[in-house]
Amino acid sequence: MSRVAQFLFRRKGGKGWHWTDIVTWIWLIGGLFIMFGPAIWLVGSSFKTPAALAEFPPTILPYVTQKVTVEGIDKPLDLYEVTLEGGKTVRLAELRRIGVVSQMIDPSNPGEIIKVNIAQRKPVREMTFASENYAEPFTHFDFVRYLWNSVFVTVVATLITLIVNSMAAFALSKYEFRGRTVAMLLILATLMVPLSVIMVPLYSIVSALGLFNSLWGVILPTVATPTGVFILRQYMLTIPDELIDAARMDKASEWQIYWRIILPLTAPALAVLAIFSVVWRWNDFLWPLIVLSRKELYTLQVGLSIYSGELNVQWHFILAMTVVTMIPVVLVFIFLQRFITTGIAGTGLK
């Protein structure tokens, strides 16, 4: 026995276990549960019917009590496994319950009412995935509209972000001109002006431009991000100027230099910024909440928060919509997480 233990717990290099090793593994395994657990619980819950969601204690998997329709009764009835006096078990449907006595009927013989003590009956459980939680918001609610709005905002804002910021980064990295330092400082200064500080006047400007209750009002204020300019400029500084000089000799215009030479060479940094921008814009909440007041213009985030703040929260729909809202970000996490983590570690910006 002790040999087995020795084998299981032996470590590289023959070193013994230190208390820090135990802390490490507790921390990592605990982290695994705490970081993924809540999201997985939400996904699991999103497949439960409203009845299963209301149950306490909840089940891990979406189990519900099986229902049967009995001739002569409108509502479907709960099905139970009942142990009769003789030790025989039969499946009966519950008509109603009075105290500890349950009035049950046999679905195949609905005429006769059988009285059973509730201690003798156990619900028949079956697993059902409530796909209507997903289907219904898509057909009955404005959900498709919110999804479309979010996709539109994310895609358009990201495209504009890439173009506008790469142009500025090009100017700031490859040209000598008066006011370059001022421009850099201005961009730097905007790091100090987060949305929460300027939301009141920004709202009036956006309204004055006629962008209130317009998706463009959500998009435009976000596209000139200082982080974007920094990431791209940093990268463009590493591109040798000789390339540009050579292109100029070949009579390339500045615009051609920008989009035929600089942009392709900046592709890795552009990709990082694109991933960042998609995640930022998809997740934006406060500003869309302010600018969009008409229901049909809500983005997913705004729609979700409004529905979940209602007095009678329809959790089965909210949970399913939350899962759909999570999908793009989870895809980014699975496939592109490495780009983001190296991006953050390199610049310290988010």
């Binding site: 993924f36 619980w41 939400l42 809202t325 970000v329």
Partner: peptide, 23 residues
Amino acid sequence: WRAVFFFPVLLSPVVVGLIWKWI
């Protein structure tokens, strides 16, 4: 393991709020 701890960073604040409201 680094990715494990990084996962919630990408979630939107609304999703984060709802996940925990549900728990």
